[in-house]
Write a protein that binds this DNA or RNA. Sequence first.
DNA 1: GAAATGTGTTAACGCTCATTAACCGAGCAA
DNA 2: TTGCTCGGTTAATGAGCGTTAACACATTTC
Lengths: 208, 208
Amino acid sequence: MNDVVTRTPTAAPTRRERILQEAARLFAERGFHGVGVDEIGAAVGISGPGLYRHFAGKDAMLSELLVGISERLLAGGRERVAAATGEGGGPAAVLDSLVDGHIDFALDDRALITLHDRELGQLRDSDRKQVRSLQRQYVELWVEVVRALHPAAGEAEVRAAVHAVFGLLNSTPHLGRPGALPGRDATAALLRRLALGALASLSGGAEG
Amino acid sequence: MNDVVTRTPTAAPTRRERILQEAARLFAERGFHGVGVDEIGAAVGISGPGLYRHFAGKDAMLSELLVGISERLLAGGRERVAAATGEGGGPAAVLDSLVDGHIDFALDDRALITLHDRELGQLRDSDRKQVRSLQRQYVELWVEVVRALHPAAGEAEVRAAVHAVFGLLNSTPHLGRPGALPGRDATAALLRRLALGALASLSGGAEG
DNA sequence: GAAATGTGTTAACGCTCATTAACCGAGCAA
DNA sequence: TTGCTCGGTTAATGAGCGTTAACACATTTC
């Protein structure tokens, strides 16, 4: 019925894709329970129940959004690790690339980044497990690289630090709407410096 | 009817206080809309409608929680700025104290920290404005100190950095439940290093 | 001791809202 | 032309849930 993933981002978006996009925006703005199906339908020019021609239900939209972003994050991370490693870059170069990739996600898919940890609890058990698994694998990608850079730090410490850096990078939704910062590039540069600055502090401290 | 704030934290907690505490926990776990009044009542040993003897409604509980945490954050921040300044500490000492204070909040009131940005949208307009105002004042406290430490950085840049550091410090709810890190002190020490490390990167970079 | 007050209870109300039913027109294949 | 599929529509259904009503009972107050 639907090919779900097989489409190039250019070309006019499918109705199905527009629904997902608008649903993501609305869910991020007012929460999953805070937005009704009629509203989502209206946002794409059809009426509430019309959505059921494209999705099994409201839950299915959220599932697809969260599983999708988790998969893209992990796939992007793996690509970057492979690419930077292939170019003969050391752990530092790999980390740089991971940070840049995550910043791209955070800036381009604000709504999804927000949903990603806000609405995880609304998923069916099986979907939540899948998302958690993907998240875990993504975290491991970072943990390995950071451990290579800071061999003296304990594993638990590094894992906590990675989570904290995600919190830092995912703070973009809180940066006042209009554009408190000059532009995208400046914001990206700032986040990169902050993240690397935080992780740099891992060497030379007392560990727990 | 209720004295709302006038109680010392020691001594047996009032029923009213227990309700707020349990509501905070449940809201953080499953979202404001995800938990019913019957459930909150059950958590404190009374039945759903019994809550209305203590609060005007479910919304009122959330309001009191969010306004309360915002007020305590701001009050705590102001005290620390005054104290550290009074002791003749420079901006660095003041920042250290602010960081420590925020970490205490993040570790001791995890549920509230989570709610603080998750459920802001569910508040009545007036309450949301009040919380936003308190948040803004708290941010300003930090911005002033950080600007004193990094005079070359632009104001917008510093403000964004402060928000990002909040994201980092508030990441504690994401550190796997059981206790991924050895203990509270180790976690606090790690967060402190990460936060100061991030902010240290503000000097000497290109600004936006 | 009577009245007021504070704090519970259970039952009923009413609204919101996701989902389903029933129906319909446009393309398009045989 | 006939008939199937696709993607819409509006109306009905049914559950969940916040809130209110009506009542009960202890404790305090006068």
